[in-house]
């Protein structure tokens, strides 16, 4: 099973990750008909240090979600970065994951976004499964 994402959406999420390094970035994967067509930046609202945690204000998510709905799009998933850490979900990521979202994690090393990997989880964050990222034009 693969995650279909436009080249631009993937590049935007990776440059977001570089822009806020050494903090974690977070954002929404905007999709239409099973294809991710945009990366929407969201403020990392984690109350403490943001180097290894992110939090998306639910009201912000709700607002972005409705704005996308009005354009015939929807939130298919979430992206965030792991500064100087691998692009694999931490136990904390899994514990807080929702089975209905796709997750893209970007590893940033010394300020450079080096790799993005996509994940899907089961109930309660069990059985995380990596998804192939299928980059589409443009």
């Amino acid at each position: 099973m693969g995650l279909r994402i436009t080249e631009r959406a993937l590049a935007d999420s990776m440059s977001h990750a570089e822009d806020v390094y050494p903090e974690e970035c977070c954002g929404l994967l905007a999709a239409r008909g099973g294809h991710v067509v945009g990366a929407i930046r969201v403020v990392n609202s984690h109350a403490g240090p943001k180097e290894d945690r992110y939090y998306i204000d639910p009201l912000v998510l709700g607002e972005e979600d409705r704005a996308l709905a009005s354009r015939g799009l929807g939130v298919a998933g979430i992206y965030h970065s792991h500064p100087d850490s691998p692009a694999a979900p931490s136990r904390f990521d899994l514990d807080r994951s929702f089975p209905w979202y796709l997750y893209v994690i970007i590893s940033v090393v010394n300020g450079r976004a080096v790799v993005a990997r996509a994940w899907k989880t089961g109930e309660g964050g069990d059985a995380p499964e990596e998804m192939e990222i299928l980059v589409e034009a443009p």
């Binding site: 639910p58 792991h82 904390f92």
Partner: peptide, 14 residues
């Protein structure tokens, strides 16, 4: 009434 997930995560391993 808005139903919305509180999305969070992060690299720090528990």
């Amino acid at each position: 009434v808005l139903l919305v997930p509180a999305v969070a995560g992060g690299s720090l391993e528990e």
